[in-house]
Design a protein around this nucleic acid. Structure first.
Ligand SMILES: [Zn+2]
Ligand SMILES: [Zn+2]
Length: 820
DNA sequence: AGCACGCCGACT
DNA sequence: GTCGGCGTGCTC
């Protein structure tokens, strides 16, 4: 007997056993895909985890429906990596596979209803609802879900069952769309005409048919069949040929007459050209030295932190190292946060590596992601630049992983599971391949810097690209003082406004930074202060001006903009715009001559808008750029001499143990935009408390000083990197039930782990999402002397214990290991 | 997660 | 009575 253990992309523990016929499928490969039925009807794509011949005694395994691959699409190394992710981040293997494998490689089915053609529906006795179903089906098949919507009931199942019994309809499974290769129409000469003598004859015949002759001659110019007969094997793409302006109808005629033939060529969606440009990067002495130190450190350390100030040219060092690794035949993965993976960086890499590398971006279509996956699998890409999820690609000979801006919180995934951190997963993955990891940033995560200081990681510091760059001059605008003196205009202190005027007079550029958090636009009643909230979530609705809609960012709920306040019926409804937008508007009044642009999620929504703003700014067509986090990324803005920071206090005092670290990183990074070679930049930070210690470190751009003070706090208050955190979230539509469940679970933990290791349960800041109430417990525990495995085991067992209670059965419990 | 089954209240 | 909501258990 032959069985397969199959991973299904579902949030269920373990693998599932299926039978297969060795006659039909002689050599099942681990990591190959199989199509299986799971449950009564659903069809899924599973991944073969292993093959065995142990007959299960508890159940009868189903037989697989099909085997998709003869060779694995997931490598054995990946499978074991997936298992690590699932263990470490406390989720199911299926959830990892779901996140790792592009949707196009996983087909799944949907139930469709269709009318039975052999039956005369007129003769049947039908209820009203059944009649409606039949009527809908007469104009084509409908999915079970859609039918529910058409009937406006939760599930049409009961009626469908009746109709099935009456033999009036059928239910069948249809595969949802999956990866389809891109096809192009190509033109070539038919075999008969693909010879010199026949071509001459044909040319003579076409002497009077000028347009057809033109088509033939154009073709021969583009496909030099006489010099190189093999060039007619593929011919030329029809699009290419017709783009020359030839007569399309003449081409049609020639094709009809058997001169040309059309065929479908499978082409790549990815822009792959031969590696044409081999530009060597010229490193400065400092860069050269850092590069050497990195290689030196790799001799003894598998992970190295490159701590390089903003604008010190880390990217060039990466490029130089990547070239080295590729020359020696290794594979390289270069991870970037989403906002940093811009067309700029891709262009820059293209200049060096041609188009021989893969780009794995969340904005790309799933079909493109499938093609990157396949090219990595087939060894065609030895270099991939990508976001978080690119760690899951099927590398076979990984030599180096670069994690740029390693401190960025966006490397951690939150929803859905797996809640993994791409940097940490990369470090594990690298160890598996005996590969090296290079972490780069100007403001390391505290965890990372601690590891580097303790010698766990190598540490290479890069002061600046050139030796004559001064730190920017950082000044603080004391908002309290200015408020007393009535010098503040809207969001602007007189200090910042003065500096801006100066910049304008001198024809220089400025960047104004406003943190994104808490500045989404919303509507509010001017009379009573009412703010429209989502009926399903505990958040106010975000106002989207371009659609004129109110949208919930948690559940997607949409609502029309009401002209009247629901609370007081006042019609004085005011829009509170984006923080950046408000600043932009004020600025237009305060400095009417300035050319101002805004760069945030909202203004860069369309495909090229980001690039457009960058281009305009670089060309000097913008004086003041107002933006969020985005302005601290991207490439060198040459002429910036002033950076203004709004609302530093809100960042610093955000109620989270990482708020200092975050605030420091954000302000430090954006400050780095001020100044350039030979010119000292200026930074103005607006604050209510210019004396707070964090600002002193920022004034000196003193990361190490900041680290030293912050790390003491972390130790004292038992936070990472000294302690580990696992956050447990409880979810249920009944607030009382979740609260009780969380307290019950908390009780179990307290008893076993002690009060000091268990915090909560507490209601999170957003306490309801999609009609589910939330509670959170935070478990904090020492890094040393605790068996992490055993602890996780205990947490999982406690969840089982909780859910075996009748009352708490429906409560969802999930874990977030190392939350950020 | 998705689906079937079965129980129970509330409308024709 | 039967329709439709919802809770429960199971899926190889
Ligand atoms: Zn009102
Ligand atoms: Zn919502």
């Amino acid at each position: 007997m032959s069985f397969l253990e199959v991973i299904l992309p579902l949030p269920l523990p373990g693998t599932f056993t299926y039978r297969y016929s060795p006659v039909l499928f002689p050599n099942p490969q681990i990591g190959a895909r199989v199509i299986v039925q799971f449950g009564k009807r659903k069809i899924y794509t599973g991944i073969i985890h292993h093959v065995h011949d142990t007959v299960p005694d508890q159940y009868h395994p189903k037989e697989i429906l099909d085997m998709v691959d003869q060779t694995p699409v997931v490598t054995a190394e990946q499978l074991s990596f997936f298992e690590w992710v699932s263990d470490y981040y406390m989720c199911s293997l299926g959830e990892v596979v779901n996140a790792a494998v592009p949707a196009g490689l996983k087909i799944s089915s949907e139930s469709y209803l269709s009318i039975n053609p052999d039956i005369d529906v007129e003769e049947l006795e039908l209820t009203e609802k059944e009649r409606i179903i039949i009527n809908h089906l007469q104009s084509g098949d409908v999915t079970m879900n859609d039918m529910g919507k058409l009937l406006d009931i939760k599930s049409p199942y009961a009626h469908v069952k009746k109709l099935k019994e009456k033999n009036a309809i059928q239910v069948f499974e249809k595969v949802k769309d999956k990866y389809t290769p891109k096809q192009e129409t190509w033109i070539r000469l038919t075999g008969h005409y693909a010879q010199e003598d026949q071509l001459n004859l044909l040319a003579a015949q076409l002497e009077t048919k000028k347009k057809q002759l033109d088509v033939l001659l154009t073709y021969l110019k583009m496909v030099p069949i006489l010099d190189d007969p093999s060039s007619n094997d593929e011919g030329i793409s029809k699009k290419h040929l017709t783009n020359t302006g030839i007569s399309i109808s003449s081409l049609k005629t020639l094709t009809k007459n058997g001169v040309f033939e059309e065929w479908k060529k499978t082409v790549s969606r990815l822009d792959t050209l031969a590696d044409t440009s081999q530009i060597t990067v010229n490193l400065s002495t400092q860069q050269q030295q850092a590069r050497d130190e990195i290689f030196q450190a790799f001799e003894s350390k598998s992970t190295v932190l490159l701590h390089g100030v903003t604008g010190s040219g880390k990217t060039e060092i990466y490029i130089s190292i990547i070239q080295d690794i590729l020359e020696s035949g290794g594979q390289v993965l270069y991870l970037l946060p989403e906002i940093a993976l811009t067309t700029q960086i891709i262009k820059r890499l293209t200049r060096v590596f041609g188009k021989t590398f893969g780009v794995f971006h969340s904005k790309y279509s799933d079909n493109e992601r499938v093609e990157v996956w396949q090219k990595v699998l087939q060894g065609e890409y030895n270099f991939v630049v990508g976001v978080r999820s690119a760690v899951f690609l099927p590398f076979n000979d990984l030599s180096l992983i670069i994690v740029d801006e390693e401190h960025e919180p966006s490397f951690k995934q939150y929803e859905p599971a797996p809640r993994y951190h791409a940097r940490d997963a990369a470090i594990y993955l690298a160890a598996k391949y005996h590969a090296k990891v290079l972490l780069g940033t100007a403001t390391p995560a505290l965890e990372t810097y601690k590891n580097a200081l303790e010698g766990k990681y190598g540490l290479v510091s890069l002061e600046s690209r050139f030796s004559n760059v001064d730190l920017p001059e950082v000044t603080f605008a004391d908002l309290i003082k200015e408020r007393k003196q009535r010098k503040i205009k809207g969001n602007f202190s007189s200090v910042l406004l003065g500096a801006l005027k100066d910049i304008l007079e001198r024809n220089k550029q400025a960047i104004l930074f406003q943190n994104r958090r808490g500045y989404a636009p919303y509507l509010t009643c001017d009379n009573c202060g009412y703010i429209p909230k989502c009926p399903h979530c505990d958040v106010s609705l975000t106002f989207h001006s371009y659609q004129n809609l109110l949208i919930c960012h948690y559940c997607g709920y949409k609502s029309e903009v009401l002209s009247e306040c629901v609370q007081c019926q006042s019609t004085e409804i005011k829009t509170m715009s984006y923080g950046t937008e408000r600043i932009e508007e004020e600025l237009e009044l305060l400095l009417p001559t300035a050319r101002i642009r805004r760069m945030d999620l909202d203004s860069t929504r369309s495909k090229y808008s980001y690039q457009k703003i960058i281009d305009e700014f670089e060309a000097g067509d913008i004086d003041i750029l107002v933006g969020t986090q985005m302005v601290s990324k991207g490439l060198d803005f040459g002429n910036v001499e002033l950076v203004g920071v709004f609302d530093a206090d809100r960042m610093i005092h955000f109620p989270d143990f990482r708020s200092h670290e975050r605030a420091y990183q954000l302000i430090h990074q954006v400050s780095g935009r001020a100044g350039r070679r030979d010119v000292r930049g200026q930074v103005v930070i607006q604050t209510n408390d210019p004396m707070q210690p964090l600002l002193a470190y920022l004034r000196r751009q003193d990361y190490i000083g900041f680290y030293r003070s912050e790390i003491l706090e972390r130790e004292q208050f038992r936070y990472p990197p000294f302690y580990r955190i696992i956050q447990i979230t409880f979810k249920d539509p009944d607030k009382q039930v979740v609260g009780d469940a969380a307290r019950y679970y908390g009780g179990i933990l307290r008893k076993q782990l002690g009060d000091h290791r268990v915090m909560g349960p507490v209601e999170p800041m957003v306490s309801k999402i999609r009609n589910q109430y939330l509670f959170e417990i935070t478990v904090k525990f020492e890094k040393q002397g605790i068996n992490l495995r055993a602890l996780k085991e205990f947490l999982l067992n406690s969840r089982n214990m909780l859910q075996s209670q009748r009352l708490y059965k429906s409560v969802r419990v999930y874990f977030d290991v190392d939350p950020v």
